[in-house]
Design a binder for these strands. Structure first.
Lengths: 106, 106
DNA sequence: CAAAGCACTTTGAATTTCAAAGTAATATAT
DNA sequence: ATATATTACTTTGAAATTCAAAGTGCTTTG
């Protein structure tokens, strides 16, 4: 079981970061506002958690102008996609181990 | 997506507590030593995280003697089992949303 | 040109984490 | 008999993390 738990990525234990990654897995890119609405979180929380993901090299940022206003959108790096997939695999293994009707299979 | 994330239980975001709960889902009861080996964690970490789960009413503690030595074993309360199942369901929903090859379904 | 609004970022108080140190028992060596 | 080690946990507090309020730098509106 330890091997499975070791593959749970500490960074993705946070609910907001988990949500950001999940959202970016199914959307090529999302901007700040849309992400905030989707996750139902505050500006500060979203901003600092994106920064964390960015510093880990999991998320990349694109800043541009839409008319006169700045627009910041986010997407996964290939490393981010891989890391998150590994995390999901670990969670799935844990769930499977738990779902089995008998003794643990982990 | 927010509704799914809201069902992720904050308490189970911690890797050690997640492991304790998963282990107790498939084992009627486990003692301190076995849990420590299974999770590969330290005494202090295990102890304080079990306390947290206990205070939330998710885990119950049974202390007894085996020969002259004390033995402390842990098991889930029905509330704990239900809370963890709810958490797993939320994770599964998130994974499914992410696994779908298209746009998000959450 | 204030004042308000938008799109974020920074800050720091509050919470959480976790390993080292502590406690209390038995076992074993001297 | 009495150190000394070992086992089985618990407590403590320094360090890390969280997140919302406050801040910044724009644009738009009154």
């Amino acid at each position: 079981m330890k091997q499975i738990i070791d593959h749970i990525n500490k960074c993705f234990e946070n609910r907001t970061r988990l949500g950001i990654m999940a959202a970016l897995m199914v959307n090529e890119s999302i901007d700040f506002k849309a992400l905030k609405v989707l996750l139902g979180t505050t500006d500060g929380n979203l901003s600092s958690n994106i920064s964390t993901l960015e510093q880990l090299g999991y998320v990349k940022v694109k800043k541009r102008f839409i008319g006169k206003a700045t627009n910041t959108s986010y997407s996964l790096t290939s490393g981010g996609r891989k890391a998150f997939q590994g995390h999901l695999d670990a969670l799935e293994a844990l769930i499977r181990g738990v779902s089995v009707d008998g003794k643990e299979t982990n």
